[in-house]
Amino acid sequence: MEKEIKIAAVGDNCIDVYDNTGEFYPGGNPVNVAVYVKRMNGNSSYTGVVGNDDYGKFMIDAIKAKGVDTSHIRILEGKTAVTHVELKDGDRVLGEYEEGVMADFRLTEEDIDFLCSHDLVVTGIWGMIESELHRIKERGVPVAFDFADKIDHDITKIALPFVDYAFFSCDQKSIEELHEFMKMIKSKGPKLVVVTRGEQGSIAYDGNVFTQFGIIECEVVDSMGAGDSYIAGFLLGLLQEKSMEECMEKGAQCSAETIGYHGA
């Protein structure tokens, strides 16, 4: 019997508004990861802020309906964050981002205590907590971080020394270039560096060995949430003490499921 896993997702949330169809869905990197962990029978929580508008209520209700712990979502006066999205041949094209109350998100002492009661904390590049990561790291709780494609961003430089599991997305570099990049990132502090490469699969580097894995073939309906799904599957596999290949396969399977439907 697999042990109970508790993953804390913290940071940004947003409503993904598809301008060409008028549809909207709850999203944001940490929100998606929390929901996908729950979908794979793990336990998860989401910590963040929403506005006191209709989108905020929709966000909380939607996350709660998936079985994620929403006890540390705060409601602030103002608007919930919105990302405008277009779909082109199944590929999502991100447009304008309206930050809303996310601009005011800061962790409280109670939030830190709550996050550190989990097996692992996961956040991302727009999560607004890069300057607080040292407080989680000091408590001995592993930190996973999705840097997306922000290789040289100031947030990346601030966060890297306090991250255990660093995730990047890059499908344009050669294998040789990726290996050099991953070695450089590993030297900044993370135990493990993982790069997702879209249709080219993923590569993981632990400081000794580069491990590659392909994709799970599926029909692409909407690629929104593909990377977040991979991260959720990978981290759950990691906490279940699976092999590197098994973690990568779990990530790819979770990703394949997500891109088979509309919205993250």
Rank of each mutant, 00 (worst) to 15 (best):
I175P: 06
G27R: 07
N13Y: 03
V141N: 07
S229W: 07
C247W: 10
S243T: 15
D89R: 13
C14L: 15
E245V: 07
D171P: 02
V220Q: 08
I231Y: 05
I155A: 14
L107Q: 10
N13R: 06
S169R: 06
A159L: 10
F114C: 05
G90I: 08
N20V: 09
K57Q: 04
G237H: 11
N41V: 07
N52G: 07
R74G: 06
N43L: 13
I5P: 01
E217R: 14
E86F: 12
K3A: 12
K66F: 11
Q200Y: 14
A65Q: 13
F213K: 05
G42T: 02
G227S: 00
M184E: 15
F145I: 14
I75K: 15
N43M: 13
D113H: 12
I158W: 08
S45R: 09
V143Q: 01
P190A: 10
F168P: 06
D16C: 08
I129D: 00
D164R: 03
S45L: 13
R92H: 06
I112R: 07
A65K: 14
F147C: 13
K183W: 04
P30E: 02
A159F: 07
R74Y: 08
S169H: 12
T123D: 00
A226L: 09
F213A: 09
E249M: 14
G214Q: 11
K250A: 15
V85R: 02
Y55C: 01
L238C: 09
C14V: 15
E2W: 11
L76N: 08
G189V: 05
D104C: 03
G140W: 09
